[in-house]
């Protein structure tokens, strides 16, 4: 996973397979960067994610809450079609974070 910080926007480029094991590692790294950098926007880029189970939904919901607490916003971008079904089941579209 690569991260980038520019103009108050922290982008995490997620890759590989997001399951319970991987989500815990991503969460630790993203949260540490966010606490250090205090971004206005946290952007999770799913473009290079090959597989995701519902742990990916938990990851998004957790980061949504974290950003809300600090007055920031979360964006979820480049979700490949094949991963979309899991997000669709979660009703997470209602949060307005998916771009």
């Amino acid at each position: 996973m690569r991260t980038e910080f520019e103009n108050g926007i922290l982008t995490a480029y997620l890759d590989g397979e997001i399951d319970h094991d991987a989500a815990a590692k991503i969460r630790t790294r993203v949260d540490a960067s966010a606490q250090a950098l205090r971004p206005r926007v946290l952007c999770l880029d799913f473009g290079n994610v090959g597989f995701m189970d519902s742990s990916g939904v938990g990851l998004v919901m957790g980061r949504y809450r974290m950003m809300k607490l600090t007055g920031g916003t979360l964006r979820v971008v480049n979700v490949p079609d094949r991963l979309y079904r899991v997000f669709a089941l979660s009703g997470i579209e209602g949060l307005g974070v998916l771009r």
Partner: peptide, 23 residues
């Protein structure tokens, strides 16, 4: 039931069985 979880602190979305049933 979708969204039911006993492990919210581990950020479980409560979707495991919903995903299994849907897939």
């Amino acid at each position: 039931e979708p969204l039911f979880t006993t492990a919210p602190e581990e950020e479980r979305a409560g979707l495991g069985f919903a995903v299994m049933q849907s897939f």
